[in-house]
Amino acid sequence: MIFVKSKDADEWLACATLQAALGVKVVRNDDQSPQPRRSRQPRPNGRHDLTITYADGRRAAVEVVSTRDETAMGFSAASTSYTTVSRLTRTWVLVVSPEARIKDLKREAPAALARLEENGTTSLEGRGISDRRPQELRRLRVVSCVSTPPAEGNKAGFYLVQDFTAGWSGGSSDHGDLVVQRCNELLASAEKADVPRKLLASGLSERHAVVVVTFDWLDSLGSIESGALPRIAPTLPKGVDRLWLVIPREPGPIRAIYWLGDGRWRDVVLTEEQLEAPRGLFSG
């Protein structure tokens, strides 16, 4: 499969997964027509991504999102940049867990670090029994931090470094639950507020959110790939009543786990034929 945009790849995977698991017809709902060259009007972006049609004529709305939005792109830029903060007197390095949110860190870390400096704290370690992190740093997913006086001529501030030591953790059922909790947070975040909004705007009574789980969620990804099914129900925002987690993997099988609101998790592993099934929706 060759995709021009990652959004196309995500919708392709969602189409293939829904068709394979439910045996339904799925069509794209977004306006995919090209914009006139001279048009200055933005393309409408208020419609859900996909529409399901069941054999009995019932329809359902689907919105597709990816975990790569905040993490892969955000950390790539943040790890190579330095944020200066006038209220600080030291240069800090913050080691943050993979699920940390760049926007939250940029907005809230300066005040948290300033309080550490006021208390005379120059470093904190969040692992083991010596964990002395204040609640705000825990909430921001700061694993540890260390500071030094700024180099001569440099201003105080902080770097962000992603922590990969949690890494690949295998098939523990606890991590099956962890990925559900992280999806709860993702769909409840301000960045994803348009997911329930678009689904509610569809006017359809059945509404699915499909989350494409990428390597940015490394700690959770391994458990899903290896066969774990979560034990807890998702906490979904109003407007979302069904949840799908799809793991893109090439080469190798693509697995998805899904919640249909009936109290149990299911899974599906796509064959090559099922993966190629949506090709007609993405050609031309």
Rank of each mutant, 00 (worst) to 15 (best):
E273M: 02
S97G: 00
D177T: 13
L124H: 05
T51K: 13
I102P: 00
N184H: 04
A201P: 01
E185V: 07
A228D: 10
R182M: 10
S66K: 07
P36S: 05
T53R: 14
K192G: 02
H208D: 03
S39V: 01
P237A: 03
P110I: 03
T235Y: 00
V4Q: 14
A20Q: 02
L275W: 06
Q181S: 12
G167D: 14
R43F: 06
M73E: 14
I247Q: 11
V64L: 04
V210R: 01
T83M: 03
R207D: 00
V161E: 15
A151Y: 11
R279Y: 11
L260F: 03
T165A: 13
G176R: 01
P253F: 10
A61N: 01
G280S: 10
K106H: 02
D241F: 01
S130F: 09
N184Q: 08
P134H: 02
W217P: 03
L281N: 03
N45T: 12
S130A: 12
Y82C: 03
R249Q: 15
L270C: 04
P42M: 02
R68Q: 10
R141W: 01
D31G: 10
V143Y: 01
T165G: 05
L22W: 04
R28H: 04
P251G: 08
A201Q: 12
V4E: 14
A72V: 07
A77E: 14
V180W: 03
A100T: 09
E273V: 13
P44S: 12
F215G: 10
